[in-house]
Design a protein around this nucleic acid. Structure first.
Lengths: 244, 244
DNA sequence: TTTGCAATGTGTAGATTTTACGCATTATAC
DNA sequence: GTATAATGCGTAAAATCTACACATTGCAAA
């Protein structure tokens, strides 16, 4: 394996949706004093790692994601690069880095990626560290400047959700209109009229109705739909908002 | 002065508008063989430089901009980080870097910023290298991966112009509606109906009419307007397009 | 078997926004 | 003073968005 580049890393903000809430994947950062057993650090961070010398940013992000989910072809997008001098500066951060990188003390800049997956079906694992989904409304203490990075990622997700069909990445292949609506409402923090929402989605040619219904629900089962990226690419027209 | 970080740089895509075209500022990259006088390299690049050890990305970008224009408080925004392994790989690029960095051969990653200024009033200078405005429709040969970086910057500029009031940064403080329209048409590559465009702008509370008219034109002089960032911030409402 | 429940699924009128135009006005230059 | 070239304003039709009410369907409990 190639050497890592010590002052450059990639952090992935992995978002998941469970039909109810928007979640983010975090890794536990735990350090105990070997002699006393005293817990020196116990908080959480985003999933990230240094880039290797023979690796692009995109490749590094995909590698991290694959390591956790086992999946390729996940939605992944670079959203911002973080290089503030004091971005990693808390006593815990320094302690952690000393322990991990042994003496490397330069500033580490990081490139942020966000990723969207359906967290009802994907299982996330990590060799030796705890990994967990947390609802974005109820986060634990975050290490480094990861609270800030997460905030930026959320901003980007929200803004992109308004103008491009990325929401479907958070749903299973087959979904109902209500699930899609719930997703929009949760991520954007708004409410939509059920009938108008449906009307809007119905006129999107790339949201294709199936001859199939929801199963296992204790009420009238809803029709299922799939999203077609191909149809979207073909039918999208350059929109102009000029909202400024 | 602090030391530079050799594997990280910032590149600024400086856009200017002259009431007619969208321009970009480029620096000549020229290298001659000292013995023979033969021209080894003669092409153009974006304006960029390594970051210093004690400097944030934003600070580095502002420094580069200030060095060229003498101005502070210019619109500046990070748009993408470029870290592809072969992003700098042409024979000319290698020759140039050898000459500049003497033996440093690692990959250099760069963080792209774009900047907007009114190029009718700002004078750009550089100590020892040629600097020039080029219309984006008529560019010279670009070194490194700067053609790609410029393309990405343009994309970002266009998309942001549609949803936020950044176009005013490309105009002088006082401008006419026609000038604003021309700007939108040139950057976005579209045509607008003059009357409808005016109507749209007129309902923006933050575009404020002055009791003052254009001077030195050989036709009916138009009314001048200014943009108020304060009014914009106060009156903006969270818009929702959901165009996907 | 019936009945209640909890969602789904559809339609319409009014308000708002966008689009497509036509014509009068006003400095300047000849 | 007259032609020129752009500014400035208004209106009707089309399209889109908003608000809102009622019937339908499958499951589950009685």
């Amino acid at each position: 394996m190639a050497k890592i580049i010590p002052n450059i890393s990639v952090d992935c903000v992995i978002f998941g949706f469970d039909f109810n809430q928007l979640n983010v994947l975090l890794v536990e950062r735990k350090l105990e004093d070997e002699a006393s057993g005293k817990v020196l650090i116990d908080d959480w961070t985003l999933t990230g790692y240094h880039i290797f010398e023979d690796e692009d940013f995109d490749t590094a992000a995909a590698r991290i994601l694959k390591g956790l989910s086992g999946l390729d072809n996940i939605y992944l997008e670079q959203f911002y690069a973080f290089g503030a001098i004091r971005r990693v500066n808390g006593p815990k951060d320094n302690l952690w880095l000393e322990h991990q990188l042994e003496g490397f003390s330069q500033r580490i800049v990081t490139v942020g990626y966000f990723s969207l997956i359906d967290n009802t079906t994907v299982t996330i694992t990590h060799n030796d560290r705890n990994v967990n989904w947390f609802p974005i409304t109820d986060l634990p203490e975050l290490g480094f400047d990861h609270a800030y990075i997460l905030e930026k990622a959320l901003e980007k997700l929200r803004s992109k959700l308004r103008s491009e069909p990325i929401g479907f990445e958070l749903l299973p292949e087959k979904f109902t209109i209500s699930q899609l609506q719930r997703l929009y409402e949760v991520v954007l923090g708004t409410k939509f009229d059920r009938r108008n929402f449906r009307k809007k989605v119905m006129q999107m040619k790339y949201v294709i109705p199936l001859d199939e219904k929801q199963k296992g629900v204790k009420h009238k089962p809803a029709q299922l739909f799939i999203f077609s990226k191909e149809v979207y690419e073909k039918t999208k027209t350059e929109r102009f908002d000029f909202s400024i």
